[in-house]
Design a protein around this nucleic acid. Structure first.
Lengths: 203, 203, 203, 203
DNA sequence: CATGAATGAGTTTTCATTCAT
DNA sequence: GATGAATGAAAACTCATTCAT
């Protein structure tokens, strides 16, 4: 019994994985609007109906992909936040983590950072936080700490968090537009430097 | 003949204008996904088929709306660029112009700054420059001038331009998310201040 | 203008008529469950999408067919009710009218008298009365009159109305089961006679 | 071998029984349209595929449920028919039995008396007699006896049987429509009285 | 040119049935 | 025999585009 169950769970997980992979490929190639169940099924080399054995509907599939793609980043960022570095180091590490992550998963960008599309698809789902909202929240936390530590000037923390996230987001778009799929170390430096100077307390 | 031609052109222009206005209304109310040719035709009080006498297909219509919506902003910004203010003043004026413009036309945001949607719709069109690309280019020009004038540190001008545009864009999204339809003066100040400090030359 | 409008209305009406006819044919052949939009479109020799130019959805089409099929009968029955015959004559006339009508339109039976199916399809539609409910109501009215006139015993009028309608309905089913498509005069006589004796006041 | 065979048959019968019970529950809760193989399997706590080891397809399952549900009623009615009561007493007892039975099993009604649905599902099955057909046949037998005994007038026995069954059926629908799940004694009385007067021989 | 009905490919979702394990 | 994942044929509905009038 145990054995059969484990076997089944393993196969199940493989299937979910295959669908996930297919969804990622479709997203990467066709974007969120072009992600039809047909295409996902074809990419997964699976019958269209089979998708519905693993996800009740398209929304659930998108949510799953969203979570699955977001989770590692979320953990990395939270680890950074929990560490005892000074705020500026945290900010720098976060920015670097974002760049690394996006450089790795182009679909992340297509799906997550394109807030409108996801908002529409996931709009009725409560326990759901968009990638951008998450990034803003974490950034704000780091900024808050910096202000408290006296490293940063008193700021409209939330506004600056949005700005920083937006700046990084745009850098991603630039990167993709130029088709360079590798992370550019200079980018992290530039973003960090500009913002650090922009917000640090007077010496 | 000349007269007839002018008459025709005038009528033609009026139709285009009516369709444009209708498209804007539809965009504002239903977003990019909800902008169907049916709705545009109904809003323009024109037969659906007539749309195709003025635009070969939906893509062309979207492109036109895009351009048309962008033009006033483009002119405002270029005027700012051509003026003989110092670079920091130009930047500030540009940011303020953006905020004012977006506050005025919510559809602008829905369509233009939600880059993915437009990118998909317009992706095969060459002679097309997105609102974001435009903003980046103009910002870069102002930055370049500032660097030349010694007001700004030597920078990766293009990168910082992306950052600035991205920061502003995210502020817009924040604003719409909070449903406040009016421009917030504080936003301009915050954005400008952070970036100015971030990029200005050491005193 | 007038001319074009009238032309258009005429064509429109023809199309509605064609779809109506197709729906009737499909209903007759495949029943309510087998009445798919595909089949109706094929029967009308029209593209599936065209159906949706005339009816917003399947429910509206079914409602239309229902009304269209019911209206003549409704009028006939109401005329009988309004006449100044004595109650027994009215009952007899009503029964005869039902038999005639159903004998003529086999689909009537399939759609209308199969109450469950229609109830499901039309359940959220308010201004809608099923054929059975209508028949029961009219029958009850005739019975009521008969009781008031002293022709019928005091009765649970509504219950007897249901019984009478049910009896007739079952006679229909018997008729169709035996594939005889013509009305049987004897049926009317039998139904009427049994019920008349069953409900008439003691002499 | 014998033993093994009996064992197998017993297990087999248990499975069939479990599936039957599950089907009844599903029918009661979801109606005929909502009776999917998935739901039946879940209710029976059996794999969907297993259903096909006991019934070749859905039609066979429905047929079986039909028969199984009908059998007790069939026996009760036949017992009444075999008894040596006078025909009017038999008729009354039959009507009462029907009302009791339907009041007890709402699913009976949903499935059996909604003739169209079953007809479609069972239409190609020859050795099948619908609940209605059965009721008509038995009623006809009682009527026949009554005519022979001189208690009833000479009648078109089959026609009157249909009428009586239809009348009862409609009373059921009325009862369900009013959501009263209990049998109403008055109903039996009304039906019986009207028909008895309608068909009894002149005194 | 204007019209708007006609089209049909494309989208999500359901479900009876099959079949490898 | 039991299992339940895989299948694919429907089904309802949408919408950009065409074309006869």
């Amino acid at each position: 019994m145990k054995l059969a169950d484990r076997r089944r769970d393993a196969l199940n997980a493989m299937m979910v994985e295959a669908i996930y992979g297919a969804a990622i490929r479709v997203l990467t190639e066709h974007g969120l609007d072009g992600m039809t169940m047909d295409r996902v099924a074809a990419a997964a080399e699976v019958a269209k109906g089979s998708l519905y054995n693993y996800f009740r509907n398209k929304k659930e599939l998108v949510e799953f992909v969203h979570q699955r793609l977001l989770d590692p980043m979320r953990e990395t960022i939270e680890e950074i936040l929990r560490s005892d570095r000074p705020a500026p180091r945290k900010l720098e590490a976060m920015i670097r983590a974002w760049f690394d992550y996006v450089a790795e998963h182009r679909a992340v960008f297509t799906l997550f950072f394109q807030d409108h599309g996801t908002r529409v698809l996931l709009e009725t789902s409560d326990h759901h936080e968009s990638a951008l909202a998450l990034a803003v929240r974490d950034t704000a936390a780091a900024l808050e700490q910096g202000v408290a530590e006296g490293a940063f000037r008193p700021l409209d923390v939330e506004a600056v968090a949005h700005m920083l996230v937006g700046a990084v987001r745009q850098m991603f778009e630039r990167q993709f537009a130029s088709d360079s799929t590798s992370a550019d170390e200079g980018m992290v430096g530039t973003v960090f430097e500009v913002f650090l100077r922009g917000i640090q307390a007077a010496r």
